[in-house]
């Protein structure tokens, strides 16, 4: 019985996770897209000449 309940909960978790994944897949991050658009438009139209150069590198390497 115990084994069975574990199995069921595992299956349920998998199902939930799956549903969760699907939800995320179709979700469009409007706010993030807007921020990305703003950053690109500001650069293309040179709206903020003193804006920090956003194309910074990732922390290079573990030394």
């Amino acid at each position: 019985m115990r084994r069975r309940s574990t199995w069921i909960s595992a299956a349920a978790a998998a199902a939930f996770a799956l549903v969760g994944c699907v939800t995320i897949n179709i979700y469009f991050p409007a706010a993030a897209a807007e921020r990305a658009a703003d950053r690109i438009i500001d650069e293309v139209w040179q709206l903020k000449p003193d804006a920090e150069k956003p194309r910074t590198e990732k922390p290079a390497a573990k030394q």
Partner: peptide, 21 residues
């Protein structure tokens, strides 16, 4: 537990997606 875990998982994924494009 499963439910909480799933919600947390979903929330982190959402937050990650929301973070930046």
């Amino acid at each position: 537990r499963v439910a909480v875990f799933t919600i947390l998982l979903g929330a982190t994924a959402l937050a990650a997606a929301q973070a930046n494009l």
